[in-house]
Design a protein around this nucleic acid. Structure first.
Lengths: 345, 345
DNA sequence: TAGCGTTACGAAAACGTTTGCGTGTTAAAA
DNA sequence: TTTTAACACGCAAACGTTTTCGTAACGCTA
């Protein structure tokens, strides 16, 4: 196991000083042509590469960005990472990933560890617990220490920073309109509790669409899924609720779900009831993931373009990191969603 | 924006030396009780936290591990990261993720960048291109420089290092047996080309099961999916192939797919043919992901326990990193798969 | 031959830590 | 009073870089 080669070792080899080697490798005119060539050849032969840690210490920046997401096993978040990684590697940055597991405490711990010199800035989506507790001190502290933060998807107005969001309300409105255009009258809404901002906003879009069409708002047609540790419990409860809704309102002819998991549950119930999709019941949902793409029938979705969100977040962050301007204004970038029509509508 | 506090600043504040501060914070008996208390209180108040970069430089280890995977938008790989992250954070390590995008070149670049001081060791799954080219010099070089590597899932015997694999052949055999037990006679195999080791091994398991049951091997019942940039093209080609197989062999009564995407394609064809699942056609596949869990009918799968694989890989790596023993023997850990029975069998 | 400009290189500080060792002060022991 | 030990702290090196500021040696001009 040959040790990694350093400037010092090269210097010893040629019996010159470390600074000479450093300059020679940087093609400095200060160093004689011959010395330069010999040192460069030697360095190349031994595959010299500067130690990133030393560079980070010296330059007081690490060229890596930290991404904190609630869960990685979600198609949307995986897409985000893909997008971030894409831009990061293009612009010469590394990516370190941390998972908050929807916990405020883990979010804080992760931020603290990463902030201790490991990264230059954060890209993050708030955990559910953080949203519920409305505790954002850690974010503001990080920014107070000069660590830029870009929030995406799950954001709050209380934090002043760069943000990348989708227009949940508008997109939900569009999705519901998509159903109305197909002559659907009784649309069942599957959403989250209100403290999850995206759920709340999408619910609003549903309301707006109904209002515009002057349709009555029927609370029986709104199912708010209560969060729980165990996803199997959530699912079976949801399926039971959907079934109940259909029993009470056999005239339901469409379902709008705020994510594809809920839509998958809906699909199962609909099949159990032997209703035809999309003839008798249309389905559309947020999250254009694998489930929608590969279920049968395939599901129409509102695609949030996760990769694009990740890319924009990364660009926003790196722009700020590389800007010398200290009070570069915060921007909020809204990534448009698009409706991907498939078999379910 | 208050600057981050350092030992030096605390030292200035109390007009003592940096070493005194460092020792005081470490509760060294060398420092007087009163000084110690005052410094600690001050540090706590200003929320002092040592700079990780400086520590890394000093200790010549970074306490972070690099994970390189071909693609993150795969449930299996996401689970791996989850497992790695779990153990890493438990044992005080950070995780940096890099994506090879199935490209040998990106795999090399990523490894080189990370190896330059950023990480202590690698956990990786070879890219398809790497497997095709059989070029493993970068892995061996990294190890030559004293950077431990743990390979998982897509491994090759040519590289001597710690490995975490599943017993693909045995598990495939079990899956096919699971079908035989349900009186299936004509099993369609959906697999990859042979250079992908997991595909090849699973195909072998299929052969073994047939052999054991003394069933004839029919090449018409084996579809080897040709890889392509565009997944839509792969899918439509696959669906066409499956359809053709059913036309030629209407007696096909089961399908075994080496991943759930292929199984989803099969499910679509089967529904098109209006065959009942599982009554007329049973389906089982590898990759216990979201598609299997939420499709209708839900799919029986061979669960590879990705999170467990990630955990074991992380433990193996950290064990080696923390072992003083230089020629700690390499181990290959085999994670057992289990069959998750759902509606499709 | 004094003065000056090049050329080619070295010394040292700096980034933020840790740590072995040296040292001045004090108080107790001889 | 002298020796010694304990105590409390500082110095400096080290990790691997970059970069500013010397400076020795040389050749040239006046």
């Amino acid at each position: 196991m040959k040790q990694k080669i350093t400037l010092k070792k090269i210097a010893q080899e040629f019996d010159v000083s470390i600074s000479t080697v450093s300059k020679a490798l940087k093609d400095s005119h200060e160093i004689g042509r011959e010395t330069r060539d010999r040192i460069q050849a030697f360095a190349k032969f031994y595959n010299y590469r500067p130690n990133n840690i030393a560079l980070s210490l010296k330059h007081r920046k690490t060229k890596t960005i930290g991404v904190i997401i609630p869960e990685i096993v979600h198609y949307f978040f995986a897409l985000i990472i893909e997008g971030v990684e894409h831009i990061a590697s293009e612009r010469g940055y590394n990516v370190v990933v941390a998972l908050s597991n929807e916990s405020l405490e883990k979010e804080i711990i992760n931020m603290e560890t990463l902030a201790d010199g490991l990264i230059d800035g954060f890209i993050l989506s708030l955990s559910k617990e953080t949203l519920r507790m409305q505790d954002y001190h850690h974010i503001n502290e990080a920014m107070g220490l000069g660590m830029p933060v870009v929030l995406f998807d799950r954001t709050v107005p209380e934090i002043a920073c760069d943000k990348v969001v989708i227009d949940d309300t508008q997109s939900a409105y569009n999705a519901v309109m998509h159903l109305f255009e197909r002559d659907r009258k009784n649309i069942l809404l599957l959403t989250t509790e209100d403290y999850i901002s995206v759920g709340r906003l999408r619910t609003q879009g549903y309301f707006q669409a109904l209002q515009e069409k002057e349709m009555p708002l029927n609370n029986d047609l709104i199912i708010k899924v209560v969060d729980h540790e165990n996803s199997d419990i959530i699912m079976s409860q949801l399926e039971a609720d959907i079934l109940k809704a259909f029993k009470q309102h056999p005239n339901i002819d469409a379902i709008f779900a705020v994510n594809e998991i809920y839509a998958a549950a809906a699909l199962r119930v609909v099949r159990k009831l032997e209703l035809k999709v999309p003839e008798q019941v249309s389905i559309i949902c947020f999250t254009d993931g694998l489930i929608s793409k590969y279920s049968s029938p395939t599901l129409s979705t509102v695609s949030q373009h996760g990769e694009e969100i990740g890319k924009q977040a990364a660009n926003l962050l790196i722009d700020r990191l590389e800007s010398s301007d200290d009070d570069y204004p915060f921007t909020t970038s809204v990534v448009a969603c698009s409706i991907v029509q498939r078999e379910s509508t």
